[in-house]
Simulated assay, not measured.
Amino acid sequence: MEAPSSSEGRWSRVASSLPVRNVQDLAACGEELKAETLQRYIRMDVQDGEVLVERSGEVPVIDLGRLLDLQFAEQEADRLRFACEDWGFFQLVNHGIPEEIITNVRSAIHKFFQLPLEVKNAYAQLPGDIQGYGQSFVVSENQTLDWADMFALSTQPPQARDMRYWPSQPHTFRKSIEEYSSELMKVSHSVVTWIAKTLNVDPKLMEDKYVSQFFRMNYYPPCMTMAEKVLGFSPHSDGSFITLLLEINSVEGLQIKKHNTWIPVKPNPQALIVNVGDYLEIMSNGKYKSIEHRVTINANKERITVSAFHVPPLGGVISPVRSTTEEKILYKTMGVEEYAKIYLSNKLDGKRALDHAKLL
């Protein structure tokens, strides 16, 4: 199948990443993991900010079933507003995705990462593309690297899919990804509709802000020798409207930055983790903020997740919406592609990309 020619398909070619060594393969080398081998992964900022393990249970939990129930909708909407304002993150339960579809996609992604390296490399990123198996945000030969491998796919709309990257192994992979992707579109519609209501914004203004979907499957190998000195994902906010994350296995690693401290997110196998992205921060004029987060590494266990980034069409525009005429506008009106290029063409560095959208 030819590469997609639609504007949605161009999403994957807004930026590219330099090729680097496969981390899963490196982690399997065992005796080779000397300090000099790990030098590009060791970082001095891992210990920046206290980690408050005791607060891991405080991350808000939102029940989609209650939002859709007239008896509880108003109360749950208040909880959703608090989650978006105060945390920028929440765990979504009773999301309605059939358990069979969740089980199947978890199994397919886990099996993919267990394939031999030469098989996975058949789906490696091509020059100028961020789809495929490899890395993201590697823009120089001397930057510190994250301890992770990624496999990225454009999944929605269907015409944006480049089937050259869609594996035939495991044999369940394509069907599982398609079914899960379709279910997530329903969930994102419900979530965004309720977010609009909590902002007193006409939901029609948001109905095109999450129509493009991009999957990034993440594999974080254990690092037995220096887990406390590497990161699976550098601190960053998401260049999305909203992100929905599914943990394939229940290994802790995600941490949210709140008041200059890091709060771990305790895995919940029944939940999707949802977070506010940069585009939603711009559109809400800063009422809902995208939050810095990072991924730490376990010394003994692998961590596997799949992030679904829901974004506006590449040819679209994102602009702040005021609740009153007196409200000060804090962000520029920007082309979606303009912001995407800024975000994807640089290494991850907290929320620095969003500085380009702020009015002085």
Rank of each mutant, 00 (worst) to 15 (best):
H95E: 00
N121F: 11
S176P: 06
W147I: 02
I329R: 11
N285A: 05
E32H: 14
R21I: 08
E118W: 11
R10H: 13
V46W: 06
F82W: 15
P157G: 08
M185A: 12
D48E: 15
H189S: 14
Q47H: 14
D349S: 12
T225K: 10
M224D: 14
V265A: 03
D349W: 04
P312T: 01
L184H: 12
S212R: 06
V14G: 00
E50M: 13
V14H: 02
A148T: 09
S140K: 15
S284P: 09
S168D: 14
S107T: 12
L117V: 02
A77G: 06
F112H: 07
S16N: 03
V138C: 03
G316I: 05
V53S: 14
Q213R: 03
R161S: 02
V93D: 07
S319C: 11
W147K: 05
M185E: 15
V306D: 12
H110A: 15
V230N: 07
D202T: 10
S345H: 05
V295K: 04
T225P: 09
G253A: 05
S181C: 06
S307I: 11
L359P: 03
I263A: 07
D69S: 00
L80M: 04
K289L: 01
P320Q: 11
D355K: 07
R81Q: 10
A299N: 14
E281H: 09
M1H: 12
W262V: 01
H356M: 10
D45G: 05
F82C: 00
S190Q: 10
S56N: 12
M163H: 13
W11K: 02
W166F: 08
I97M: 10
Q255N: 07
N260R: 15
A28R: 05
V211S: 07
D25G: 12
L360I: 09
V119C: 12
Q169G: 05
Q169N: 13
T324S: 08
F151C: 00
E118H: 13
S140R: 14
P320A: 04
R322Q: 13
M185V: 00
E252R: 14
V105C: 07
D278G: 02
Y165Q: 06
T324C: 08
K347F: 13
Q47M: 11
G253E: 09
D63T: 07
A340R: 11
Q255G: 06
E8H: 14
A271S: 04
K328F: 04
S7G: 13
D48G: 07
I42G: 03
L126W: 14
V230R: 09
C84W: 01
W11M: 15
F151K: 04
L67G: 00
S307E: 03
S12D: 02
D63A: 07
V119H: 13
P167D: 10
H293G: 02
E207C: 01
K120E: 03
M150N: 12
K351V: 04
